[in-house]
Design a protein around this nucleic acid. Structure first.
Lengths: 352, 352
DNA sequence: TTGTAAGCGTTATCAT
DNA sequence: ATGATAACGCTTACAA
């Protein structure tokens, strides 16, 4: 402890404390002596004691759905990296879409007085959270919160993915390529799922002669995509828009046992841009989300809020449509192809 | 803070403290009053203050290579789950194989007085770590530490994967299927890599007529496996044992651009058993590692050590050979097939 | 430039 | 059954 260091250096605790944090009013000699003493004693400051006094912990809390999920792993990596770079340690907890677990995690963060808390894909209600934590200390990252659809996003403290632009770009791209009879395969009806589905419906509804049939792999179906694959094989849509890449890849795999060949009989697009999508055969066309950057930005918002005393405004992260091999140009050209263009808000990228 | 709760309940701080932690000598009436006061005031205990007194933080530290990596993600998920179940919060930091980052992480854990620290795939020397932390508080999970090969594993505080049994099982399986001219593709010469390579060499060396050629995708090659793929296409081995699944899948993908077809011209086996291996086409034969369980066990060892005052003995986690479609039986049977059997220590599993 | 002393929010040890 | 008080290790006015 500090007292030992001070004693060894033959000075008072306060001087030792100051010397170790490079307070300008400490003499070089003293400073060197303190440093030497600290080093030889193997002194390691006690963060708990420090923060008890300082009222700042240099701790951030990150709540994720599941660390084993590729998207969340990326988010976590970006978050940790940015936090470490700013001198923050990170508590990471998983919520698994379980409100109880999420609340326990939140509670843990609060007990440890985290300077900032990021809640990714959480299912708990933001207003419940705001009752327990200052708005300056929380950021919601792509939360599963119905209010986003009904009332739109709050003006501050939210970090979102541009679901609409992403799906819109994907659908328009398919339309440009000549696809008309489409399907959307959802995954359980989360807010994001509903948003993407609604966008697909809307965009396709505006194209004459185009149709969209909606499926839901649901929570149960997620484990067994073959049921959806069979349904698709029966309905034979020309293109399938999947809720995310995981679902898309599982579906492509399941479709191998059916009469539908990807991409010759049916095109497929995913969402997220997970690494796997760029390595699968055929390469998956997908809407890439900057997951790592999302994590970094969350840290940025929290740190800025702590510094400035104002929570940063809500941000919508841009996505980019990455063209793979699952969406070839339709061989049978119907003549209406053309410059539909990519939806505003999403970039178009060729290759993975 | 507690003082407010005490005041609201009309009793002393000590009583309030006791009431909240269900001290048996507090009356029901008082307890109820305190609870009510705490709830209405939204009291959240301060972990820093608590641990300052208690000398226990209920914090564990986990150092990983990279959160975005599937294997580490699984490990992290298992670790977090087990920790949360035991009431511990987890600091997670990434080392990225950089000794400096690893030391910074360690330092952070120490400053926060983590009750236990798990170092996964770290490159820093265990003896350096033991100089800073009590052996009771650290567990090394599959560290990249040469001493493991030279001197064997320390008797306590290590959690290892059975590299030898895994590779041995894989190679014997290939031999049983009739493969003789084999290749091992390493990835940069980590301890684990060297261990697997040495095992492959040894096992194959004991089979008459069998040979092993060693390649190293290295750190640079990892990003561009096509170079290795081309080399393999030139040498045309019958089977390739890859350091891990990531490499195996990348290699299989790269091989598509060569004259070698997987699995008809060349068999491939991986290591780790990542989710992706069970979803690829063809399904990858791999040595599955219980990554989630590894994380859980690390917590188990740390918590037990804190409880018992003795670090648990080193454990070697069993692996299982999972048969996919990348290792079909050799069409040209050389007659020496037979009951080589699977190496002791590894289980054989059919299907993914 | 350095030292003194109070206090951060809890808990544990004594008393009562 | 409950209360007063010291202590945990550090920071920071305020003095000197």
């Amino acid at each position: 402890m500090l007292a030992d260091v001070a004693r060894a250096a033959g000075i008072s605790e306060s001087t030792a404390s100051r010397a170790l944090k490079d307070d300008p009013r400490i003499g070089e000699t003293t400073r060197a002596a303190v440093r030497a003493a600290a080093a030889s004693l193997g002194y390691v400051p006690n963060a708990a004691a420090r923060s008890l006094r300082a009222k700042r912990t240099q701790i951030l809390g990150l709540l994720l759905d599941d660390l084993a999920d590729p998207v969340h792993g990326q988010l976590a990596a970006g978050f940790e990296e940015a936090a470490a770079a700013q001198g923050y340690a990170v508590f990471m907890m998983t919520g698994l879409h379980d409100p109880e677990r999420e609340n326990r995690a939140l509670r843990t963060f609060l007990e440890h007085r985290a300077d900032g808390i990021a809640l990714a894909s959480c299912v708990i209600d933001p207003s419940d959270v705001y009752e327990q934590v200052s708005r300056l200390r929380v950021v919601f990252v792509q939360p599963d919160y119905p209010g986003l659809i009904d009332d739109g996003a709050p003006s501050h403290g939210f970090l979102l993915i541009d679901d609409a632009a992403g799906v819109s770009a994907a659908v328009r791209h398919l339309v440009d390529l000549g696809y008309r009879r489409m399907a959307y395969v959802g995954a359980g009806g989360t807010t994001s799922d509903r948003m993407r589905r609604a966008t697909a419906t809307a965009v396709i509804g505006a194209v004459s002669g185009a149709s969209l049939r909606v499926y839901d792999a649901g929570l149960a179906g997620w484990r067994d995509p073959s049921m959806v694959a069979n349904a698709l094989a029966a309905d034979r849509p020309e293109a399938v828009i999947c809720y995310d890449d995981k679902l898309a890849l599982a579906l492509i795999d399941a479709l191998r046992l059916t009469s539908l060949d990807v991409p010759n009989d049916v095109a497929v697009v995913g969402f997220d841009g997970i690494v796997q999508a760029g390595r699968s055969r055929p390469r998956l066309t997908t809407v890439a989300v900057p997951s790592v950057e999302l994590g970094r930005r969350a840290v940025g918002m929290l740190v800025a809020a702590a510094r400035d005393g104002t929570m940063a405004p809500t941000e919508v992260m841009p996505v980019r449509l990455v063209l793979g091999e699952t969406t070839p140009s339709r061989s049978v050209d119907d003549g209406t192809d053309g410059a539909t263009g990519v939806a505003a808000g999403a970039t178009l990228v060729h290759g993975a």
